[in-house]
């Protein structure tokens, strides 16, 4: 079954003077998908987000947003909302006034624009009439999200939306984004926080030096990836160490630098199949497995490996 595409980019390039920000970017994002954009600083993420919001126009290639070709600056179709380089708001206005001014800009009455609803959605009802001047970064992020939600977007473009959010706030925002995606809105978010991306995104695109080095489901990224380091906490560390050493494709890492003081903890390096063999052997030998977690997430490991490869190949 064909999926509806919210974004379709083919061979998109963008340069600023001599600096090539995007170098032949291909990207597909379907409706209802939360798509992560990840890459080192200067990789071109913000430029790409800017193109999606219509803030700039590609030098070459083809970009379609919500099925509409975008050929000129500020030409993105209705239904696209979001922010790049952090949320923007006017500190001399309250959140309610900020949103009312935006609603009025679009020709909506403040009463009927759903301002209270979006403020409640992002958890800002309690401070709706306080001046935004004193807001923390997290509150500003929520207000930026509320401003985007006010337009009832079909494509939401967010740049580091979890910056400054406390765990509760992060959970709240994740809930909002998941609900939007469930309702069919495509969400593209860039972040350096791998945990966020893993928690939210069904697909990710890794960008380095203006090029896509990976684009696809997170599961594919993990499968494609090479060996990862895993933390093993067992009932018998010595037996576990011995069995890990005997299991083909598994290596004990003694210099992993993770909780070295904990004698019960073992760090092994393996691909998923070899790791599964080790787990089976541990269980067969009656060694209880209390914890098995990757030292770094598959996404982070892949990100580091792929971007390092890209940097080395320049």
């Amino acid at each position: 079954m064909e999926q509806l595409l919210a974004i379709r980019a083919r061979g998109v390039t963008k340069s600023f003077g001599d600096v090539v920000a995007l170098d032949g970017i291909d990207l597909d994002v379907t409706q209802g998908q939360i798509h992560g954009l990840v890459g080192p600083n200067g990789a071109g993420k913000t430029t790409l987000l800017g193109l999606l919001l219509g803030l700039a126009v590609a030098d070459s290639g083809r970009l379609e947003v919500l099925g509409t070709p975008v050929g000129r600056a500020l030409d993105s179709p209705d239904g696209v909302a979001g922010f790049v380089d952090g949320p923007a708001l006017y500190p001399s206005l309250t959140p309610r006034q900020n949103l009312a001014a935006l609603a009025a800009l679009r020709g909506h009455e403040a009463r009927t624009a759903g301002i209270d609803d979006v403020l409640a959605e992002v958890g800002l009802t309690g401070v709706a009439d306080d001046r935004a001047r004193g807001f923390s970064l997290g509150m500003r992020q929520r207000l930026g999200l509320a401003a985007a939600l006010l337009t009832k977007p079909r494509l939401l473009v967010l740049d580091e939306p979890s910056n400054g959010l406390d765990p509760a706030g992060k959970k709240h925002v994740h809930g909002v984004l998941n609900r939007l995606a469930a309702d069919g809105t495509a969400v593209v978010l860039s972040s350096h926080n791998m945990d966020d991306l893993e928690a939210l995104c069904s697909e990710v695109t890794i960008v380095a030096t203006g090029r896509v080095v990976f684009s696809g489901p997170l599961s594919k990224l993990a499968a494609d990836n090479r060996e990862l380091d895993y933390r093993l906490l067992t009932s018998d560390p010595q037996a576990a160490r011995r069995m890990a050493g005997d299991t083909p494709g598994v290596r004990v890492v003694d210099d992993a630098g993770v909780r070295q003081a904990d004698a019960k903890l073992l760090v092994v390096r393996a691909m998923v199949p070899a790791l599964e063999d080790l787990v089976v052997r541990l269980v067969e030998e009656g060694v209880a497995l209390r914890e098995l977690t990757p030292v770094v997430s598959p996404l982070e490991a892949a990100f580091l490996a792929l971007t390092e490869q890209q940097e080395a190949g320049r």
Partner: peptide, 8 residues
Amino acid sequence: GTWRHLFV
């Protein structure tokens, strides 16, 4: 830092 917000 509100130019982009305004342009969008």
